[in-house]
Each structure stands twice: as structure tokens, then as C-alpha cells.
């Protein structure tokens, strides 16, 4: 859980990311209940409709499922699906910015590889 949200990015996406993070890290297990819309709203002081939007998108993506009158729960395949999705965005979010910065600093490909392997420290 983060302490505060960032006003410069859509709030529902941040709610979604938090839940995804918790599932990927194993803090929320398959079959476990996730915080409700109102719990998110009270914790972060955000509009409940915004929290609901993030949670509902995860239902559409079959990461969560709804049990009427009880709440939202993590699906069995949630973690596997999320890890697959994260892998796909890994290149865009981590490798591309790394390459950009390395280019600016004139760091060679070989040097990067060594750093990744931890051989440069």
C-alpha cells in the first residue's frame, strides 16, 4: 500500500496497479477478498466511483471476480495472467528508458550488461 496517490495520473489506474502489485507479490492470494470500493475511498480520500472504476476493470480482465453481497475476490489465474502482462510491458517501461539514459551518458552495451550482472560494482 502506498501512503498517497499521485494527482498527475488517473486515480483509477493507480488503484488498479496497487491491486495488481499486491497480487503479483503474493500479498493477495487466489480466492482472497480485496478491499472494497469504500475501503479504498476512505483510505485514500478519493471518490468511491473512481475506486470502483479501477476495481471493475480488474473484474473485466478476470483478475477479480464478484461474489454478490460479499465482495470482490482474486481469481485463480490472476497471478499468472498479471505476470504475463507485466513481462510484456517490461521492455517498454524498463529497457527503453535504460537504453535512452545509457545513450545520453555514453554507456556501452557491454557496460550495461556488466552492470545488470552486477560485475561493475
Amino acid at each position: 500500500m502506498k501512503n498517497a496517490l499521485d494527482d498527475t495520473r488517473p486515480i483509477y489506474i493507480q488503484i488498479k496497479e496497487q491491486l495488481e502489485d499486491s497480487i503479483v507479490a503474493g500479498r493477495l492470494q487466489a480466492g482472497e477478498r480485496v478491499p472494497s470500493t469504500n475501503e479504498f475511498a476512505s483510505f485514500y480520500k478519493i471518490n468511491p466511483a473512481t475506486a470502483a472504476k479501477g476495481i471493475n476493470e480488474l473484474v473485466t480482465e478476470e483478475i477479480l471476480y464478484k461474489r454478490r453481497g460479499v465482495g470482490m475476490f482474486v481469481t485463480d489465474n490472476a497471478r499468472v495472467m498479471l505476470i504475463e502482462k507485466r513481462k510484456q510491458s517490461f521492455y517498454e517501461h524498463f529497457i527503453l528508458p535504460l537504453q535512452d539514459e545509457a545513450k545520453k551518458l555514453n554507456i556501452s552495451e557491454e557496460e550495461i550488461i556488466n552492470m545488470v550482472k552486477g560485475e561493475n560494482q
Partner: peptide, 11 residues
């Protein structure tokens, strides 16, 4: 000047 969903605006 503008009437928009707040998250849409952030996006």
C-alpha cells in the same frame, strides 16, 4: 472552458 471526468483530464 472545460467539463470533464477528472481521471480523463489527468490522462
Amino acid at each position: 472552458l472545460m467539463k470533464e471526468d477528472t481521471d480523463q483530464l489527468r490522462d
